[in-house]
Design a protein around this nucleic acid. Structure first.
Lengths: 164, 164
DNA sequence: CTTGGAAAGTCAACAAGGCTGACGTAAATT
DNA sequence: AATTTACGTCAGCCTTGTTGACTTTCCAAG
């Protein structure tokens, strides 16, 4: 067993271990999105709609520009998704009272129902994985994921974590 | 503190905890793909090319149908990617000697170079995250990801893990 | 030896969801 | 009054996924 200069065992940092982690991310992300994808296919929505719905549910009354910075897409791309959600009566958009340029976004009852269906499915998988791995593994899982984020994304993530 | 019937503390399974995990996956996956994406943008390739290159590197001589089952896309979709990689001299495709219907895929030297560049970038981020979180967290990370995969994908993942 | 079917490849058409660029409008700020 | 900000929209492009139909090659079973 190779020991690092400081006496710390760094076997978990070999290229082989890192590659396994990379492939685990790839395969796991597929599972992560599989259930919502299945629900959305057939209705006219996709993963982009799911993301918008998720974060509007998460931060009711959020503005378009706020959503833009969380999702990291262009306004044209988000707008296409948002427009269909508003037209279909899943999302309500209302002018800001303090700043009337802003649009504040909320889920309608219908939107809440779809959100519930999607997040129930996604949480069920997550719950099964968490239960199988145990609390200590879950803590490690979250630590590694957080360390993997871009600083700007970590900021967004932590704002959501606290704010909610 | 709520205790489960069995006396086990299940606080880590609350909806709130699960939601945090879901968002962590979302933001972390962005970081996970960010560096290779940056390298590929401007050359005529995308994430799909990266995936093909990764798994060909991983299992040299693999067949097209094998790659199909790992990547989980249609042959038409994979073929488009593979064709450009072959045309550009990054991948070599050769008829099978035992079964001449099969095409065995290898990276050329040029392909190896790009693979190296991409995986160096991706490993660097993974290494930083692993180092920041520590070996115990990494073990938990892998456990949860593995539990999150679809059974079929877990099979693929484990085949790669052992076979390599 | 013939034939059925698997493996691989190709063409065409389409959709989702990214992107850029340009433009318009209303409201806030300077 | 001029500029900036927030948002919406039109047009067009790219990547990467999809289905369907079709061909070629070739193994293997009858």
């Amino acid at each position: 067993m190779a020991e690092a200069p400081g006496g710390e065992n760094l076997l978990f940092l070999t290229d082989e271990q890192l590659r396994k982690g990379i492939e685990a991310m790839f395969f796991a992300y597929r599972g992560f999105t599989a259930d919502p994808d299945r629900i959305l296919e057939g209705m006219n929505y996709g993963r982009a709609h799911h993301r918008a719905i998720h974060f509007i549910h998460r931060s009711p009354g959020t503005t378009v520009s706020n959503l833009l910075s969380i999702l990291g897409v262009t306004k044209q791309s988000l707008n296409r998704v948002l427009r269909t959600l508003i037209e279909d009566g899943l999302v309500r958009s209302e002018k800001g009272k303090v700043d009337a340029r802003e649009r504040h976004l909320h889920l309608t009852d219908k939107g809440q129902m779809l959100e519930r269906e999607l997040s129930d499915a996604q949480r069920a998988r997550m719950r099964a994985a968490y239960r199988a791995a145990g609390p200590q593994a879950v803590a490690g899982f979250r630590q590694v994921l957080e360390a993997m984020m871009d600083p700007e994304m970590r900021r967004q993530y932590n704002r959501l974590k606290e704010g909610g």
